[in-house]
Design a protein around this nucleic acid. Structure first.
Length: 666
DNA sequence: GAGCACTGC
């Protein structure tokens, strides 16, 4: 590599122009390629140079050197995530013991990207290239001179972990460059991170930020980082940097995807999806299909309809291999979608949004897009979060379509009209921050010393009602005082859990409550097969009349007594992976509890104190059974909101039963 | 008779 431009030297000849205060850098000259392998196959170096981002190497390094914030818009397959940290290292951004950080919203992405980069650099993962996610720290940050060889210089981490690091080192002083990847997803932790990084920049003008995003929403991101810097514009001058964020666009490596729309709005997208799959199968050449629906229910129905169709012998649809995909599936079922398609079969994966963000399917040529997804919405008045089937955004529709063009030119069938796409769909989705309960978000900011929550500078502000509601809940739990400042160090992130654990200390059941807290933090410890009689029977074996929390305790004890046996879990319809996570989380909670001076103490067979501790933490959810109500209707104490026992609860049948008795009695 | 997708103490 000889054509490098070193930071601090004269800038290379790049065309740039000012546009509304934002610097656009376009069409850089292609960098001269260096060595080529003497062998017949592509070396890692050659593979790296073939990535679209390689053409922009010099440009990116120039922008990072000369701007405090650079925004890189790059489609999937551009190589930005794996390459940019390496470019930065090659250009000297790790000199003097500094570290380059690259954040991801998901754990799996952190692991895979880190190991890919370690492989490309020919180093052992955990040394020069490392990663940190919860429960796994694969870095070597021991800075002693002797160990200097394998010290971590490029570090991948989940954005949640970087937030945690801020509690110990508020200025994140060991990092020279922080790259926030997948910023377009606008997850809560990414948004908090962006807000805090903007604050850090004022105190550390030498820190460079790279915001990496898949959509052109970049412009509003640029505005966010530009605001208020104008007012304090002098600060960075000494460093010879531009305060306006730079925006650079890198093309992806996708193939062309041809779009099809329905002529008229469809009355039933599930039916429409099924018949579209069948007609693609009859009319189009081989190639796998990916269908986007909204949830488990829809997906199971669609799979069933298509499988029935496929079983009709002699029909062309008999060569379909139909597979569902959603997070509730067991690992084994999820892995099926990655299996090789048998000869003469065509794979059809029916998926939720999981195929949009978390999993990448190879070999998809046809995408069927219902135009809907399930989204969480939060109502601060009732303090209730809901899942609602909602039209997706244009950005999301484009992302879905792009899945068809990863291996060769593809086709995307949109089950909505072009008119709807052009005129009705929102350009971007609503950030998660504006659709969620903000209790843990507020407590995190408080723990970082941000006291004026309502005045915090967010990439997009949540509603004042949600903020006030969150503060109210924290106040009623005694977590914040009148100031409002945190009354005690935030040991546990979730204040309800925190309160429950503190109460258990007084009640003498911390052993049990820490188990319950751990179980509440995983998705579900039951396997997710619905409508299966055996599952209900298994539940009855563990069910306690005292409710789900006590049931969890019985299950956990059984798991420990089985010696943490996967077979025992399988037999009892318990999710082994979830149980393993419970063990890990429990251990972490136990450590924190110990640090807070809470000793583990068991209440033995006394479950009453356990239930007292649970209600101490979750009293805000208290509700009253309505007399004479059919089907067990409750109303919340705080807002008289109508609520029902969830069918997944062990009390579900019991309540049905007891309300039946009520009816008989009156 | 029902849970889009994720993160972390």
């Amino acid at each position: 590599m000889s054509q490098l431009w070193k930071p601090g030297t004269e800038r290379p000849g790049i065309l740039d122009d000012e546009e509304g205060g934002v610097l656009f850098c376009s069409a850089p000259p292609a960098a001269a390629s260096s060595s080529s392998s003497a062998f017949g196959y592509a070396s890692i170096e050659q593979q790296r140079q073939r990535l679209p981002v390689y053409k922009y190497r010099t440009a990116i390094l120039y922008l990072v050197e000369s701007h405090s914030t650079s925004i890189i818009v790059g489609e999937t397959g551009s190589g930005k995530t794996t390459q940019i940290p390496q470019y930065l290292k090659e250009a000297g951004w790790v000199d003097g013991g500094r570290i380059i950080a690259c954040t991801q919203p998901r754990r799996l992405a952190v692991q895979t990207v880190a190991s890919r980069v370690a492989e490309e650099m020919g180093v052992k993962l955990g040394q020069e290239v490392g990663y940190t996610i919860r429960f796994e720290d694969f870095t070597n940050e021991n800075l002693s001179a002797l160990a200097a060889q394998g010290v971590t210089r490029i570090k991948f981490l989940s954005d949640g972990v970087l937030l945690r690091e801020m509690m110990d080192d508020p200025l994140l002083s060991k990092y020279s460059v922080i790259m926030v990847d997948e910023a377009h997803e606008r997850s809560i932790s990414t948004d908090i991170l962006l807000g805090l990084l903007k604050k850090i920049q004022r105190r550390r003008p030498e820190l460079r930020l790279i915001i990496s995003s898949a959509t052109i929403e970049a412009k509003s991101m640029a505005n966010f980082f530009q605001n208020s810097k104008r007012r304090r514009g002098v600060e960075s001058e000494g460093h010879g940097m531009k305060v306006e964020p730079a925006i650079l666009s890198v093309e992806g490596r996708g193939f062309n995807v041809q779009m099809f729309y329905v002529a008229e709005p469809v009355p039933d997208y599930l039916q429409a999806a099924v018949s579209t799959v069948l007609s693609i199968n009859e009319q189009e050449p081989m190639g796998d299909m990916l269908v986007f629906l909204t949830g488990q229910d829809d997906i199971d129905t669609a799979v069933q309809l298509l499988t029935e169709e496929a079983q009709k012998n002699g029909k062309p649809s008999s060569d379909l291999m139909v597979l569902p995909l959603y997070s509730g599936l067991s690992c084994g079922d999820q892995d099926l979608v990655f299996s090789l398609t048998p000869r003469g079969k065509r794979k059809v994966v029916i998926s939720t949004n999981i195929a949009d963000t978390s999993l990448t399917l190879e070999g998809v040529v046809y995408v069927v897009d219902s135009g809907f997804s399930k989204q969480r919405f939060y109502n601060p008045i009732t303090d209730i979060e809901n899942l609602v089937v909602t039209p997706i955004s244009k950005a999301s529709a484009r992302q879905r379509a792009g899945r068809a063009g990863r291996v060769r030119p593809g086709k995307c069938y949109r089950l909505y009209t072009e008119e709807f796409y052009l005129n009705e769909m929102a350009a971007d989705g609503i950030p998660e921050m504006q659709r969620s309960n903000l209790v843990s978000c507020v407590i995190q900011l408080k723990a970082l010393g941000i006291d004026n929550i309502l005045g915090f500078d967010w990439p997009s502000s949540p509603s004042p009602e949600s903020m006030v509601r969150a503060l109210e809940v924290l106040y009623s739990l005694g977590v914040v005082d009148d100031d409002p400042k945190l009354t005690s160090p935030a040991g546990f992130q979730d204040p309800m859990i925190s309160k429950m654990i503190l109460a258990s200390n007084k009640l003498g059941c911390s052993e049990e409550i820490i188990t319950i807290a751990a179980i509440l933090s995983v998705q579900s410890i039951w396997v997710s097969v619905r409508g299966l009689k055996e599952l209900d029977e298994a539940k009855l074996r563990f069910a306690a009349a005292e409710g789900d929390h006590v049931t969890f305790l019985i299950m956990y004890r059984g798991f420990i007594q089985s010696d943490k046996s996967p077979k025992w879990c399988h037999k009892n319809f318990i999710n082994y992976q979830a149980m393993k996570k419970v063990i890990e989380v429990r251990e972490q909670l136990r450590r924190i509890a110990q640090w807070l001076g809470i000793a583990l103490k068991s209440s033995g067979s006394d479950t009453q104190v356990v239930r007292r501790a649970v209600t101490a933490g979750f009293f805000a959810n208290a509700c009253r059974l309505e007399a004479y109500s059919h089907g067990g209707m409750y109303k919340t104490v705080r807002s008289s909101q109508e609520v029902y026992i969830h069918p997944s609860s062990v009390l579900f049948r019991l309540v049905q039963l007891s309300s039946l008795i009520n009816i008989l009695l009156y």
